[in-house]
Design a protein around this nucleic acid. Structure first.
Lengths: 109, 109
DNA sequence: AGATTGGTTAAGCATATACTTAAGTATTGC
DNA sequence: GCAATACTTAAGTATATGCTTAACCAATCT
């Protein structure tokens, strides 16, 4: 099992590549096979599969092979993990700015 | 000027490192100098500065030097950029699941 | 059965990342 | 002025990342 920080490492690392984000975008429109994912991408199939593995070990994507075709889907829980980390920091920062505003207002009294 | 995709590359890449996330967390509690940022971190000062540079070129952090001390603050706009990308994908995926649910419900008629 | 499709494995390579130590440069305090 | 503080610069290194090509395997189609 991975701890929270290691998971975030993997998710943000996975999202840091434009090819992988294109793959994620494609998958938000529904499941796809490996070759469907590869079709718009300008690189070899093994390269696509390597990106797919990064997405899979990050937890962002789940895959299952039926016959000879591997079907890929998004796992939105992992996407939320990253979203939550960011929104919490932003909230903290904004609360701080509010407190700062209050302090300045008090000083005007 | 950077395009949207390149910005996202840099932001997610910046957030993919636990040391840098700790630095961001520290900065959400208010501005800090380089040595204050370095203090809880178990690495050399140049290493911290290198991380700081990654955060700065990603746009997540802004710094300004006054006298001999460099003060660092968060730029929440960049944090929102990443948050927005994720939430949009998640929304898209959830809408898709809803439509799928509707379709299945119709089939029951 | 033989060819095609869809994906996998392995090996190699160029560049990027995450550090390190050593030495240097401006402020600032005494 | 001299020392301490707060970085800064440079150079080196080990590991990771993002590809490539070549060869392989296992379902499916004809």
């Amino acid at each position: 099992m991975l701890n929270q920080s290691e998971s975030l490492d993997l998710v943000f690392q996975a999202l840091a590549d434009p090819t992988r984000r294109v793959m994620v975008e494609r998958l938000t429109r529904g499941p796809a096979s490996v070759s469907e994912l590869a079709q718009p991408l300008d690189m070899s199939l093994p390269a696509v599969v390597q990106h797919l593995q990064v997405l899979e070990t990050s937890g962002l994507v789940r895959t299952a092979k039926v016959g000879r075709v591997r079907t890929c889907t998004i796992d939105p829980k992992t996407l939320s993990l990253a979203e939550k980390w960011i929104s919490e920091r932003r909230a903290l920062w904004e609360r701080r700015l509010d407190r700062l505003g209050d302090l300045l207002a008090e000083e005007d009294d």
